[in-house]
């Protein structure tokens, strides 16, 4: 959640190609890729989509968070392959048999297709994650008409977390000094959470109350408040938004058509 202020530095000409695409376009791109992967059930198409998402991610020189997210999901995808390969209800064609354990083609294909979809979603979202910053997103969202209150809420989440983590460290220290030790049983562990969570929640809510009063005093609720207009740094915003939204609608319609036609 660090904030390289790329947006404040230099003109469009000096910035990379990823920064002339606005955040909403990036999000819509991720959405469209995800929807595409859901419209097809062919593994080869899925692999192609993974490849496309991967290429976009690689040429934008971003990949760190993708690695993390993939790690996060790969174990689950692995167990999916095993469970579906063994027990998928449409399993018919035996693929391999390892020491009497039989893996079937249908289940493995089904799981592999779903695994690819997950990868498409992760990679496409990672492109958004690594090429935008919190402040860029919030500024842009306010520009395109999201209420400033919603933007404030989204922004504060990013600032509140480091503050809470610091508070938690201090509280844990204080309680350890009072004699809380590592607990053994699950019930003891859950009980040992309270001496830390209660002060933390109260401190966090106290700070929320202070912020709320400060906001009110500063006239945040005033109907006359106007949003700050900033220079536009993006290209072809409207075309991108409309085009990608249209694509999303078509894809959803298509998928619904396919599902619907099964029942007719």
């Amino acid at each position: 959640m660090n904030e390289p202020n790329s947006i404040l530095q230099g003109s469009v000409a000096h910035r990379g190609w990823t920064s002339v695409i606005d955040p909403v376009t990036k999000l819509l791109m991720a959405l469209d890729l995800a929807l595409l992967s859901f419209c097809f059930t062919n593994l080869l198409v899925e692999i192609a989509l993974v490849f496309v998402a991967l290429v976009i991610l690689l040429i934008s020189k971003a990949g760190k968070s993708a690695v993390h997210a993939i790690e996060f999901s790969s174990f689950l995808i692995f167990t999916m392959l095993i469970i579906q390969g063994l027990f998928y209800s449409h399993n018919q064609t035996l693929l391999v048999s390892v020491v009497g354990i039989r893996f079937y083609q249908e289940g493995l294909l089904y799981a592999a297709t779903m695994g690819c979809r997950i990868f498409v979603i992760i990679l496409a979202t990672s492109f958004f994650m690594t090429t935008t910053t919190v402040s860029e997103n919030s500024k842009y969202l306010e520009q395109v008409g999201l209420s400033y209150k919603a933007v404030y809420v989204l922004m504060s989440v990013c600032y509140i977390l480091p503050e809470m983590m610091a508070n938690m460290k201090k509280i844990q220290m204080a309680q350890r000094a009072r004699g809380i030790n590592q607990q053994k049983t699950i019930l003891e562990k859950i009980k040992s959470i309270l001496p830390v969570l209660v002060p933390l929640v109260i401190k966090t809510l106290d700070q929320s109350m202070e912020r709320s009063i400060a906001l009110r005093l500063r006239g945040f609720n005033s109907p006359h408040r106007v949003a700050l207009k900033s220079a536009n740094l993006y290209r072809h915003e409207m075309v991108n938004h409309r085009g990608l939204s249209l694509l999303a609608i078509i894809l959803i319609g298509w998928k619904l058509w396919i599902i619907g036609s099964k029942f007719i």
Partner: peptide
Amino acid sequence: TFQDPDDQLF
């Protein structure tokens, strides 16, 4: 005891 009493009361 620490500086901030609210770090320990629960």
